[in-house]
Design a protein around this nucleic acid. Structure first.
Length: 497
RNA sequence: GGGCCCGUAGCUCAGCCGGUAGAGCAGCGGCCUUUUAAGCCGUUGGUCGAAGGUUCGAUUCCUUCCGGGCUCACCA
């Protein structure tokens, strides 16, 4: 497996030859004067002044012509062609150049000109090896046909692209742009919240109890304390403790870990933005959600309307608001308000939804919703007022105590946000936890654990609070037109090779 | 976990109804001082994902396993 094939041996042999010339193939630094885009952008001045430019980058193509050669270098800003001549370079440097391969990192110095075919090019008068590459880069070629860029032999295998993201990034500028956009989205959100006096905080990733969501956790062990700890599935209970402590607006970009299946929209570790605002309710959270997402889209994409996999999605506020039961009535054609659990079982049977004995009415409503409503929620939609048993941390609805003031925002049939008027009645909270404990005793591994310290905090008094979670990965998918969560994570989880 | 599809050279792929493998690019050698999928001539390179089975003979057929993709289920 570690045996070197011919190509790797050839590169190592070239490495030796470079060393034999007394040249260090892994030197320490290089001072560039320009990035590739700055050369193409300032062509007129640079070509007139004949001023020397220095650029560093990776060799991405080489076309030798005997005593001359053309090549392309790639840096973070783009690509630029370089031109080398034996007569201007000299015998020895030209011989060194012959030992270079695609993928090598070099630094060049030269002057800027335009070739016969019109391409802006650096005529190299001196160059240095900055790093010899010992592994052949997959070769992709492209040509412009009728103004369209046609790529040949494109590395299309997802596996190589996910496992060796570095290769994917070297080869595909559009992949680099996706991740640059991800960073811009996060920055824009941070700016949005900071401007509104939210404070960014950090809370524990290793938690003695996992809470704030319904999911199975990853378990780890702390040796010194000799206790099991959980990688957080949410930071909700910690951020609320901070609200109790007197901070009125906090947020965290929270890396969460859930020990569940993986698919196009699920990775075991993912990023959730959670924010909490004192003296606010879920209505305020709806407004902040639609405002934030539309502003971010405008800043990052340049429009509040984006194309996602062929579907036009319009984030312009206000978003549609429907109640959960209202949406079910509309799309499933059944009325569930005030319906007994028994009657609901019959309804489910009629709707071809499998029901087992452990499912309460909340769970059944959820199932009907998933099957009949979610697929219709393409344009941004707030679904409000979930049954109390599905939201143990949300405050009861001010008009109907069987419901909670909870909403989820759906876009393109998938959830991107979840928010409540937070439950701050410590007695009700304890009862809800106890109901969860019963579910757990019945075998529901995802039921939430009773957190005494959190209850203690609530007993000191938490102001009325609105809380919001936004799935950052899914938002990035929407704003980068990415079909899979793996396309917006640098290093998605894979089975070990 | 179920279904469908895929795994052949560094990369992209071909290989029919079984007879132990081909192309382009890359590499290597040669020619070439404005090319751009550079070109021309020559050439190296493969445990055909792994293990079993059927067969005189398996890249090809069958089984299992490994890895991947899509999809359904599960899952906030």
């Amino acid at each position: 497996m570690t045996e070197l094939n011919e190509l790797l041996l050839q590169r190592r042999s070239k490495l030796t030859q470079i060393r034999e010339k007394g040249i260090n193939p892994y030197p320490y630094r290089f001072e560039a004067t320009h990035r590739s885009s700055e050369i193409t952008g300032n062509f007129d001045t640079l070509s007139e002044s004949k001023e020397a430019v220095r650029i560093a980058g990776r060799l991405m193509s080489i076309r030798g012509h005997g005593k001359t050669s053309f090549a392309h270098m790639q840096d973070a800003a783009g690509r630029i062609q370089i031109y080398l001549r034996k007569d201007t370079l000299g015998e020895e440097p030209f011989a060194l150049y012959k030992l270079l391969d695609m993928g090598d990192l070099i630094g060049v110095e030269g002057t800027v000109f335009r070739t016969r075919t019109g391409e802006i090019t650096v005529e190299v008068r001196d160059f240095e090896v900055l790093c010899k590459s010992l592994r052949p880069l997959p070769i992709e070629k492209e040509r412009v046909e009728d103004g369209e860029k046609v790529t040949f032999d494109e590395v299309s295998g997802k596996e190589l692209r996910y496992r060796q993201r570095y290769v994917d990034l070297i080869l595909h500028p559009e992949v680099r742009r996706t991740f640059e956009r991800r960073t811009k989205i996060v920055s824009a959100i941070r700016r949005f919240l900071d401007e509104r006096n939210f404070m960014e905080v950090e809370t524990p990733i290793l938690q003695p109890l996992y809470g704030g969501a319904s999911a199975r956790p990853f378990v780890t062990h702390h040796n010194a304390l000799d206790i099991d700890l959980y990688l957080r599935i949410s930071d909700e209970l910690y951020l609320k403790r901070l609200i109790v402590g007197g901070y009125e607006r906090v947020y965290e970009f929270c890396k969460d870990f859930r020990n569940e299946g993986m698919d196009r929209s699920h990775n075991p570790e993912f990023t959730l933005l959670e924010l909490y605002q004192a003296y606010a309710d879920y209505g305020d959270m709806m407004r902040i959600t639609e405002e934030m997402v539309s502003i971010v889209a405008e800043e990052v994409v340049g429009s509040q309307t984006v194309d996602y996999q062929g579907t036009e999605i319009d984030f312009t506020p206000p978003w549609k608001r429907v109640t959960m039961l209202g949406a079910i009535e509309k799309y499933a054609g059944v009325t569930l308000e005030g319906v007994s659990e028994e009657a609901m079982r019959k309804t489910c049977a009629g709707l071809e939804i499998e029901v087992d004995g452990t499912m309460g009415s909340g769970k059944m409503i959820d199932e009907i919703f998933k099957k009949y409503v979610e697929p219709h929620l393409i344009q941004p939609t707030f679904v409000m007022d979930y049954p109390v048993e599905t939201a143990p941390l949300a405050k009861r609805h001010r008009k109907d105590s069987a419901l909670t003031e909870r909403f989820e925002a759906f876009v393109n049939g998938s959830e991107i946000a979840n928010a409540f008027s937070e439950l701050n009645d410590p007695i009700d909270q304890r009862e809800r936890f106890e109901a969860q404990t019963q579910l757990r005793a019945m075998g529901d591994e995802e039921a939430q654990a009773l957190d005494e310290d959190f209850l203690r905090a609530l007993e000191y008094g938490m102001p009325p609070t609105g809380g919001l979670g936004i799935g950052i990965d899914r938002l990035v998918m929407l704003l980068t037109d990415a079909p899979s969560i793996r396309d917006v994570l640098f290093f998605p989880q894979m089975r070990p090779e």
